[in-house]
């Protein structure tokens, strides 16, 4: 009893630690190529409405990230560091060059860095704080870069140790929550 009591009392102090990118790098690694499922909730502050979508994702190392929304619309995004291509069925209907919009470019980079857990890259854009509890971790990224803080208030991440959830808080009060499930190496 007393051992349990002491364990409960001191566990947070002993095992929870401040997180830095290096620690996170050691802990939260994603395989070079992987697949998985996602559920995304987008909350729009002005309408007080949430749009929920779900689908699969596939990351091919050094190639592209395929983000396939299956519900409620069918749509596939192919994201590379060069640009984003949108597919509906067989038809590619919007080519949006990443670099044409600074916002999309940066978000794309961050998204890649987060999904592929390239923490060093994130360190150039954000200040990290977070906690670590054994294999479970949570991190909060606050922009240190003027261009990003213009539209992102913060990003929170959770993993155990693989990434489970991303929450992106936009500057205007909108919020995007993405849950990951069943991430497997390819």
């Amino acid at each position: 009893m007393s051992r349990l009591f002491w364990a409960l009392l001191f566990f947070p102090v002993i095992s929870y630690a401040d997180l830095d990118f290096e620690q996170l790098g050691k802990l939260a690694k994603t395989p070079p190529s992987f697949t998985g499922n996602f559920i995304q909730e987008k909350y729009f502050k002005t309408l007080d409405a949430t749009l929920i979508s779900s689908g699969t994702l596939r990351y091919q190392h050094d190639e592209a990230l395929y983000w396939q929304t299956l519900e409620p619309i069918q749509n596939e995004l192919m994201m590379t560091t060069e640009g984003v291509i949108n597919r509906q069925g067989q038809q590619e209907f919007v080519h949006s060059e990443i670099n044409s919009s600074p916002a999309i470019k940066i978000i794309n980079e961050i998204f890649f860095a987060v999904l592929t857990t390239e923490w060093q890259k994130l360190a150039t854009f954000f200040k990290l704080s977070g906690q670590l509890n054994g294999q479970i971790w949570s991190a909060e990224l606050v922009p240190s870069n003027q261009d990003i803080s213009q539209f992102i208030a913060k990003i929170t991440l959770q993993g155990s140790p693989q990434l489970n959830e991303i929450v992106l808080y936009e500057f205007n009060g909108n919020k995007t929550i993405i849950h990951f499930d069943n991430l497997k190496a390819l």
């Binding site: 749509n75 916002a103 539209f151």
Partner: peptide, 20 residues
């Protein structure tokens, strides 16, 4: 119509979404 929906569901679309 689809582009608008896609923008809404796109995980990396941020910025002004004045739905009205």
């Amino acid at each position: 119509y689809h582009r608008a929906l896609m923008q809404l569901y796109n995980p990396i679309s941020v910025g002004k979404k004045a739905l009205i």
